[in-house]
Write a protein that binds this DNA or RNA. Structure first.
Lengths: 217, 217
DNA sequence: TAGATTGTTAATCGATTAACAATC
DNA sequence: TAGATTGTTAATCGATTAACAATC
């Protein structure tokens, strides 16, 4: 069921793919060879219908009467998520969060390789984080061009973030993983994935509060 | 327009609240006194209709012919998000990410106060992170009970996360901010907010790839 | 072949947007 | 009062779930 046309996939579906990938990886590691949408639905606590709909956005990976081959499906999702090709990253902001991400080994395992780290602070420049030298911000543009960089990770305070994002875009970056608490304004075609930690914490706070209110009634 | 009944609010709405809060805070800091849903919609790039619908879930904060008072709305959303009451946190896992979060001053400013830090690693125990002593995991339960802890932040590898979450629940924690790459299984009423960084990165990777594919056609 | 389970169409549910009467 | 803009109802759109024919 190959098709040349690229169907528009909703972000709701995309958001679920990594979770499928995680569960299928675990099943694979446990040596499970095949699984039906119903069994998977029980494990993952979603409907079997949704699972089948989701997978079928990308073509038919299953087989009637059999289910899905775990390893095949796992690999297909990896391909869909772009995990079969290597990505070169730069990390901008070598503060606590930047260092935490740089030290996160699993990214590298998945093909996300940090090539360069940048920071404004003169005292950080020249230091090494997991073997990667921290560079001056001035080198940013040339480094991106010379090292075939795919993705920029923004872990700087929001004050500088918008300006840096502009520089990134001008240097040809087309994916930004943004940890700064601002909305970046990028031209269409440049992908931004926001991780707004404080917003996530506020959501938790809301739900905690709300539940306590409900209990009182 | 006060109402005793607690209307069920969808998580879609809840997810948008922190962003409103951020924009209103900025407007407030700029000295803007009032704003209409239409003006806000232009700034935030959402529809005015959605803004009005969202706010009206919680009561009428605006005024016909005038719009919304920025400061009032800002404070109301803070209340809704539970930012007017203090929250006591424990941080479990004093690795890179845990330290990054502990050093993130803005949480404290918003009323999220880290009271205790815990780690399994003997060599970390006794150290201080931003003035907070790292404790042994054995102390976890008693510390939670004695220090009126609200929220637990889980920044440990996924291997231990499920077991620790169980201990947290048994100690009466009812909100977990989970950075471990597992789905926690908690009883109803315990709130979990997941921050799955690798899943976020995969989503970015997907969108990057997909865009590149589309370009090729 | 009979049983199982997918792929896919149709039905339902929920969220977003549009429209407009109410009202400041 | 007239103009502006909310609060809210109605219409639309999209996502999820259910159902079932196709098929391994």
């Amino acid at each position: 069921m190959e098709s040349k046309e690229i169907k528009e996939i909703s972000q709701a579906v995309v958001s679920r793919l990594p979770r499928y990938y995680r569960y299928l990886g675990e099943l694979k590691d446990e040596g499970v060879e095949r699984i039906s949408s119903q069994d998977l639905s029980r494990i993952m606590k979603v409907t079997a219908s949704q699972i089948r709909q989701d997978f079928n956005n990308f073509g038919g990976f299953g087989q009637q009467g059999y289910g899905y081959n775990v390893e095949l499906l796992y690999n297909e999702i990896a391909k869909i998520l772009g995990l079969h090709s290597k990505h070169h990253l730069v990390l901008i902001g070598a503060g606590n969060l930047g260092q935490a991400l740089a030290n996160y080994v699993n990214f590298e395992r998945r093909g996300f390789i940090i090539k360069g780290i940048f920071d404004q602070k003169e005292e950080l420049v020249g230091r090494e984080i997991r073997g990667i030298k921290v560079r001056r911000m001035e080198e940013l543009e040339s480094f991106i061009r010379e090292n075939d960089i795919d993705i920029a990770v923004l872990t700087i305070p929001k004050t500088g973030a918008v300006a840096v994002a502009d520089r990134l875009v001008r240097s040809g970056i087309n994916a930004i993983w943004n940890f700064a608490h601002v909305d970046l304004n990028v031209p269409e075609g440049v992908q931004v994935e926001n991780v707004h930690l404080s917003e996530s914490l506020m959501k938790l706070s809301y739900n905690l509060n709300r539940y306590n209110l409900e209990k009182e009634l």
